[in-house]
């Protein structure tokens, strides 16, 4: 069990890492989906069944779909740039942060035996009900925000590079999955 868990963790990290190595955006999105799928297995193994299911459907499923949509509209810029800050610096910064965090935390974390606790839906709906209410407000803001960013009343006048008209129209469908995503996630 522990070995399987460790192997899956390594696989997940590998997926995450490959998401940045990929030359094509679409491949990158797919590696992310893989990472997400393995994550949901890990969660399942940890006993978090509900969240595993949701992560699989939203994280691995829906988000990937969104990414693919977006990439297909924006066009897959496959050209690999040099990173804007030197890679060694980036590496040092990220390594030092996680090493420090790990050093400060890992030794004190011991799993406690499960406390008697309300069921998942009870916790979610009765103890965390306010969060859910706030979230509906948040979703409203998000929907309006996305509408505001993407809906096109008229064709924009100034464009640096002439974006094909097809893309402009294709801008609309993204809105629907977004709201659908919101609804689905809420449910």
């Amino acid at each position: 069990m522990s070995f399987l868990f460790a192997a899956l963790t390594v696989a997940m990290l590998l997926c995450a890492f490959l998401a940045f190595r990929a030359r094509h955006l679409i491949v990158s999105a797919l590696w992310l989906a893989g990472c997400s799928a393995i994550l949901s297995i890990l969660m399942y193994l940890l006993g978090a069944y509900w969240i595993a299911v949701i992560e699989l459907s939203v994280g691995a499923g829906l988000v990937t779909v969104l990414f693919v949509f977006a990439i297909s509209i924006a066009g897959d810029e496959s050209a690999e740039f040099r990173s804007s800050i030197p890679r060694p610096i980036a590496l040092i910064i990220s390594l030092v942060s996680i090493i420090l965090l790990g050093f400060m935390t890992i030794s004190s974390l011991i799993a406690l035996p499960p406390a008697t606790e309300a069921t998942f839906s009870e916790v979610l709906w009765q103890q965390r009900g306010l969060d859910m209410l706030v979230q509906s407000g948040l979703l409203f803001a998000a929907v309006v925000g996305i509408l505001g960013l993407l809906s096109e009343a008229k064709v924009p006048v100034e464009e640096k590079k002439t974006a094909p008209a097809k893309e402009l129209q294709a801008g609309r469908p993204v809105v629907k999955p977004a709201t659908a995503a919101a609804r689905e996630a809420k449910a």
Binding site: L130, D131, Q135, L138, K160
Partner: peptide, 28 residues
Amino acid sequence: TDLFNLWVWFEAMAISSYLLVAFYRDQP
């Protein structure tokens, strides 16, 4: 009064303000 609740409000605040910041969306 709840840490996570605080985070949810906090995110709601952020999400409400993204569009307002990028309000002139035709301006790079």
